[in-house]
Amino acid sequence: MAGRKALIVLAHEEKTSFNHAMKDASVDALQKRGWSVTVSDLYKMKFNPVPSRDDITGKPKDPNNFKYGPETASAWAEGRLSSDIVAEQKKLEAADLLIFQFPLYWFSVPAILKGWVERVFTQGFAYSVSTMYGSGPFQSGVLHFCGFQVLEPQIAYSISHAPEDARLQILEDWKKRLAAIWEEKPISFVPDSNFDLSYVGGFVLKQEVQDGQKAQKYGLSVGQHLGKAIPPDSQVKAQKK
């Protein structure tokens, strides 16, 4: 393993914490095996976790309608990202191994680490439209965990591409829903037990679950709710003719 490089991104403010002990153990073990180890101690660095226009240098492509994703993508391609982002990206590019060391807060990472990801994993550098996959634990890991009866999310799809009249309609639809929100039934969640978690390529529904879904009009909406497609009719099964 000599010559390998590791990056540890540490997100815990207290040096006496077990997270720091875990970091130290990682550094010690890797260095003993010839690894070069870099640590981004986010609290010690006072890393700014808040995305903003300051994350790019020079003039924005569209200063009147600043869109963080496209603007930072252009800035990355043109070498105009702020120096703190560039420094972290260089660490990532050099690393053969990346370790995130953090306490689990509300089924998620600490805010400073979330902000690090939001600012450092810029479009173009870390992902593109063809290489992205999203899934969020907020509904299940936070609200459901605390005993809330979770209602269907109100999602505005592709809002950055929606014309003004469509946006106004979205607002009106939300007001209409709010008028009767107390009467809504809570959503349910697809349990992990429905999936074959040993599948190498990702989550795959168990065969018995697939068989039980054959007679249903809609497929399961993972992480959202059952029995209704999101967006409407997007999961309607193909009809044989």
Rank of each mutant, 00 (worst) to 15 (best):
G212R: 10
V222R: 14
D211C: 04
G147H: 01
W35Y: 14
L104F: 03
E88Q: 12
Q89S: 07
K114N: 09
L10E: 00
I159A: 14
Y157G: 07
I56P: 05
A179I: 06
S36D: 14
M132T: 15
Q207H: 05
A87D: 06
P191N: 07
T16H: 13
D62T: 05
P232A: 13
F47W: 15
A21E: 08
Y68I: 01
T57C: 06
S82C: 13
Q31P: 04
R53T: 12
A87N: 06
S17Q: 06
Y43Q: 01
F102W: 02
G134P: 01
R167F: 12
R4E: 08
P51S: 10
G223E: 12
K5I: 11
G202D: 04
V236C: 12
K44T: 14
D211Q: 12
V190G: 00
P110H: 00
V86G: 04
F100R: 03
Q216A: 13
A73G: 02
V120G: 02
K5E: 15
L98I: 13
N194R: 01
P60L: 14
F203N: 14
L197I: 11
I99L: 13
P70D: 01
I8N: 05
R167H: 05
K32H: 08
M22L: 15
A21N: 07
P232Q: 11
P70K: 12
F100M: 07
K61P: 03
A25T: 11
D196P: 05
K185L: 10
Q89P: 07
Q207I: 03
S17N: 07
K91I: 06
K91E: 09
V117G: 00
K91F: 05
L171S: 15
D24F: 06
W76Q: 02
L30F: 01
I230V: 15
F121D: 03
W182Y: 10
F125Q: 05
L81M: 05
G201R: 09
V9A: 08
K114G: 08
H225Y: 11
F121R: 00
Q149D: 14
W76G: 00
V142N: 00
V150M: 01
L98Q: 02
Q169N: 09
A215I: 03
V50W: 06
F100I: 12
I170T: 10
D192C: 09
A156Q: 08
H225E: 11
L151V: 03
A73K: 15
F18W: 14
Q31H: 02
G223A: 15
T131P: 03
N64P: 00
I56N: 04
F195W: 10
D211V: 15
K44S: 11
D96T: 07
Y133T: 10
S160V: 14
E93Y: 04
S158D: 15
D55S: 10
S52Q: 13
A73P: 01
A229Y: 04
K23I: 03
T57G: 02
A162V: 11
K91G: 00
R33I: 02
L151I: 11
Q210T: 09
S52E: 01
N65D: 11
L151M: 12
P103F: 09
K206A: 07
S74P: 00
K185Q: 15
S83E: 12
Y157W: 15
